[in-house]
Amino acid sequence: MKYIDSHCHLYKFNEIERKRIIRNKDIIILSVSEDLESSLKNLVLSQLNENVIPAIGIHPMEYRKSK
């Protein structure tokens, strides 16, 4: 059975924690972004790991900070 983590800030974990999370292929991870930098990190994570789906975008709080 596959499980889906529908809201994870995977890029915020350190490398050891990230590897531990990603190695479980029974979990599909929707890794959400907050800004351009985190969007790019999530794209890389998704290219390297078939069970990571990137959610690209700017969080509304980040958008308000830029105004």
Score class of each variant (00 low, 15 high):
Glu17His: 02
Lys65Asn: 07
Arg64Asp: 10
Ile27Thr: 07
Glu37Leu: 03
Glu15Asn: 14
Ser33Pro: 11
Leu43Ala: 06
Leu10Thr: 10
Pro60Gln: 13
Ile29Phe: 04
Glu50Gln: 15
Lys65Gln: 12
Glu34Tyr: 13
Ile21Cys: 02
Lys19Met: 14
Gly57Tyr: 05
Cys8Thr: 11
Tyr3Arg: 00
Glu50Ile: 02
Asn51Cys: 02
Lys2Arg: 15
Glu62Asp: 12
Lys25Asp: 00
Leu10Gly: 01
Glu62Gly: 03
Glu34Cys: 13
Lys19Tyr: 07
Asp26Gln: 06
Glu62Val: 01
Glu34Met: 12
Glu34Leu: 15
Phe13Thr: 11
Ser31Glu: 09
Asn14Gly: 10
Met61Thr: 13
Leu40Ile: 15
Leu40Trp: 08
Ile4Arg: 02
Glu50Ala: 12
Val52Ala: 01
Met1Gly: 12
His7Thr: 05
Cys8Met: 01
Ile16Leu: 12
Leu40Thr: 11
Lys65Met: 10
Asp35Thr: 03
Tyr63Arg: 12
Gly57Val: 09
Lys67Asp: 07
Leu43Thr: 06
Arg20Asp: 06
Asp26Val: 00
Lys41Asn: 06
Ile56Leu: 02
Pro54Leu: 09
Met1Asn: 13
Asn24His: 09
Cys8His: 04
Glu50Val: 04
Glu37Asp: 11
Lys19Ile: 02
Glu37Gly: 00
Ser31Leu: 11
Asp26Ser: 03
Glu50Ser: 08
Arg23Gln: 14
Met61Asn: 06
Lys25Ala: 03
Asn49Cys: 03
Ile4Phe: 14
His9Asp: 02
Cys8Asn: 03
Leu30Val: 15
Lys41Tyr: 14
Tyr63Thr: 07
His7Tyr: 14
Lys2Gln: 10
Ser38Tyr: 03
Ile53Ala: 05
Ile16Gly: 00
Pro60Ala: 05
Val32Trp: 00
Lys2Asn: 07
Leu43Asp: 13
Gly57Ala: 12
Arg64Lys: 14
Ser39Glu: 11
Lys19Pro: 05
Gln47Glu: 13
Asn51Asp: 04
Lys12Ile: 12
Ile27Gly: 00
Val52Lys: 07
Arg64Glu: 13
Ile58Ala: 00
Val44Met: 05
Ile27Asn: 00
Leu48Ile: 09
Ser46Pro: 11
Ile4Asp: 11
Asp5Asn: 15
Ile58Asp: 00
Met1Cys: 12
Ile22Met: 08
Leu36Gly: 05
Asn49Asp: 02
Ser31Gln: 02
Glu62Leu: 00
Ser6Lys: 06
His59Thr: 03
His59Val: 05
His9Trp: 03
Glu15Ser: 13
Lys41His: 11
Val44Phe: 04
Ile56Tyr: 08
Arg18Tyr: 05
Val44Pro: 01
Met61Glu: 14
Ala55Tyr: 15
Ile53Glu: 04
Leu30Arg: 12
Arg18Ile: 09
Ile28Ala: 07
His59Met: 02
Leu45Arg: 04
Ile56Ala: 02
Ser31Pro: 04
Val44Ser: 03
Lys25Gln: 08
Ser39Cys: 14
Ser66Gly: 06
Gly57Ile: 12
His59Cys: 04
Glu37Ala: 04
Ala55Phe: 15
Lys41Phe: 08
Lys19Val: 10
Gly57Phe: 07
Arg18Phe: 11
Ile21Trp: 04
Glu15Ala: 09
Met1Pro: 13
Glu50Leu: 08
Ser38Arg: 01
Ser39Val: 14
Pro60His: 09
Leu30Pro: 01
Ile29Leu: 09
Ser33Ile: 10
Glu50Lys: 10
Glu17Val: 11
Ile53Gln: 05
Arg64Tyr: 12
Met1Tyr: 08
Glu15Ile: 13
Lys25Trp: 08
Tyr3Asn: 01
